[in-house]
């Protein structure tokens, strides 16, 4: 097994073992989405109209808040030092961690999306489209959040700082994610253009995120 896969495997194992954070993102997502109707009322027509937006906001918050500990645990037990001494470029190591995080946090969240859609009265057929936009867009959230996680660990601050740093950067993802979901459900705008841009954003952050995060980690060395 090569170092890249070994790191993905280790992080996924850590996430699903006791004390790991897998499913915590999905749980947070579930809770946030279930809370929304208490704020805006149980009107099913209204919920159906803004359902995709609620789901996207929930996914955004869940992806970012769960990233908080991505580097912090490795920093605290000295693993981060060794990760930087590997034969593989740090950019790849960082990307491996992000992929493992996406698989254990974002993927479960996408899987439970249809259930939440039912609660928000989004049509069954439309749910597939919303899930598809999440599938295409959440990698962008994870990889942009990665930069925030790296900055937060070098500053030895976590939690809200990460969200404050990263949320503005995720504006395009949110815009095109919700636009694509709405286009698929309500129309009349076509689904293709916003969805393609969403994919492009994910691909771009797939490259930009690890490079920036690795740079942040190297700069923050102390």
């Amino acid at each position: 097994m090569n170092p890249f896969l070994a790191l993905i495997g280790r992080d996924m194992r850590l996430a699903i073992r006791v004390g790991g954070g897998a499913l915590m993102g999905a749980l947070f997502y579930f809770t946030v989405v279930a809370m929304t109707p208490f704020a805006i009322g149980p009107d099913l027509n209204l919920l159906a109209r803004i359902g995709p937006a609620i789901l996207w906001l929930g996914a955004l918050l869940a992806s970012l808040l769960a990233l908080d500990r991505l580097f912090a645990t490795d920093h605290e037990d000295g693993s981060l030092d060794l990760l930087m001494m590997g034969t593989m470029p740090l950019e790849l190591a960082v990307a491996a961690k992000a992929i493992a995080h996406w698989l254990t946090t974002a993927l479960p969240l996408i899987v439970i999306t249809p259930v939440l859609g039912l609660m928000l009265n989004v049509e069954m057929s439309a749910m597939g489209w919303v899930a598809l936009t999440l599938l295409a867009g959440t990698p962008a959230l994870t990889f942009i959040g990665l930069i925030g996680a790296a900055l937060a660990v070098t500053l030895r601050r976590g939690g809200l700082l990460l969200a404050v740093l990263v949320l503005p950067l995720t504006v395009p993802v949110l815009i095109f994610g919700v636009a694509a979901a709405n286009a698929a459900i309500i129309g009349p705008a076509p689904f293709g253009p916003p969805f393609t841009i969403l994919c492009a954003l994910s691909l771009a952050s797939l490259v930009l995120g690890p490079v920036a995060a690795a740079a942040a980690l190297r700069q923050g060395l102390e």
Partner: peptide, 15 residues
């Protein structure tokens, strides 16, 4: 149910 999930998460988090 949400409260239960929180409880399970609490048990799950502590080693």
């Amino acid at each position: 149910f949400l409260l239960y999930l929180g409880m399970l998460a609490l048990y799950w988090t502590a080693e």
